[in-house]
């Protein structure tokens, strides 16, 4: 009984610690004046109105969406087939994948950015200040997330046996991948994609250093707004927090569904 209360208090404190800033952000974004009082003196949606009517915001959001989705799609197209090939035909390469997927964690964003600027600000591939370099570096950035989430999906099915079974029925290699393997790892791919998009939505360091004003993403826009008007910046944060929250909820729902299904499979097998 006592332990129950303590754990509830601890949980409550953690919850409060995590949620107060968010609540404060939300409140500040709808406050008219908030300086000497505990709660704002008045409320208004004018900052949101201002934000959503500003073309700059729309453009920045669109740029972020473009660059995030382009990166994630490219990543799916390259990483998933490579993992499949590694598992079925070149099992030794799996170790290499493992190492590659940890490497981006070892590189702080600033160092990565400086290196990339050195390499790509002159020929033959001069792509700094263009979205292309963002897509390229984001590809590396999300590699760990893409790899880990899909690897787990690949583990739940017997990739090699399924491939061979399809081949024995006369199915070609590409067809096998599209019709058998991909549908069975799709859920893992979706969660990997959602994590990656969330990560990329919040990315500032690389965007700021590599392209800056030349391709103003939502984070760069936010950075600017903070200097202009705190209320507006807060409205912006609250808006994109909602987007991320929505994506996270979808992710949790997907993960939960997969888990119940796997559990269902096990009990059925018995």
């Amino acid at each position: 009984m006592k332990r129950g209360i303590i754990s509830k208090i601890v949980l409550g404190l953690i919850f409060a610690y995590l949620f107060f800033p968010i609540v404060a952000t939300l409140l500040f974004s709808v406050a008219t004046r908030w300086s000497t009082t505990i709660l704002p003196e008045g409320y208004t949606l004018s900052y949101y109105k201002l934000l959503f009517s500003s073309p700059e915001f729309g453009h920045a959001l669109l740029r972020t969406i473009n660059v995030s989705f382009a990166t994630v799609i490219l990543s799916i197209l390259i990483i998933i087939p490579s993992m499949y090939l590694a598992i079925v035909y070149y099992p030794r390469l799996e170790k290499l994948f493992e190492i590659l997927s940890i490497l981006p964690f070892a590189m702080p964003g600033v160092i990565l950015a400086i290196g990339l600027i050195q390499m790509y600000s002159r020929g033959p591939l001069q792509i700094t200040n263009t979205p292309w370099i963002l897509i390229g570096s984001y590809f590396v950035l999300i590699l760990p997330f893409m790899y880990q989430a899909t690897k787990n999906s690949f583990r739940t099915i017997n990739v090699k046996a399924l491939t061979e079974a399809a081949m024995m029925l006369g199915c070609g290699k590409l067809e096998t991948f599209i019709k058998i393997i991909f549908p069975n790892v799709l859920r893992g791919v979706i969660s990997a994609a959602l994590i990656s998009v969330s990560v990329l939505f919040g990315e500032f360091v690389l965007a700021n250093l590599l392209v800056g004003d030349n391709y103003e993403t939502i984070q760069i826009y936010l950075y600017k707004m903070q200097k202009v008007d705190g209320h507006l910046a807060n409205a912006l944060v609250a808006s994109y927090f909602m987007v991320i929250l929505l994506m996270s909820l979808i992710l949790i729902w997907l993960a939960f569904r997969r888990e119940t299904e796997v559990r269902g499979q096990k009990t059925e097998a018995r």
Partner: peptide, 20 residues
Amino acid sequence: QNKKEQNIGMVFQSYALFPN
């Protein structure tokens, strides 16, 4: 080789049914 011509049926130890 593509096994379309081969026409050999196989049942695997793990059955390898397509889960989807």
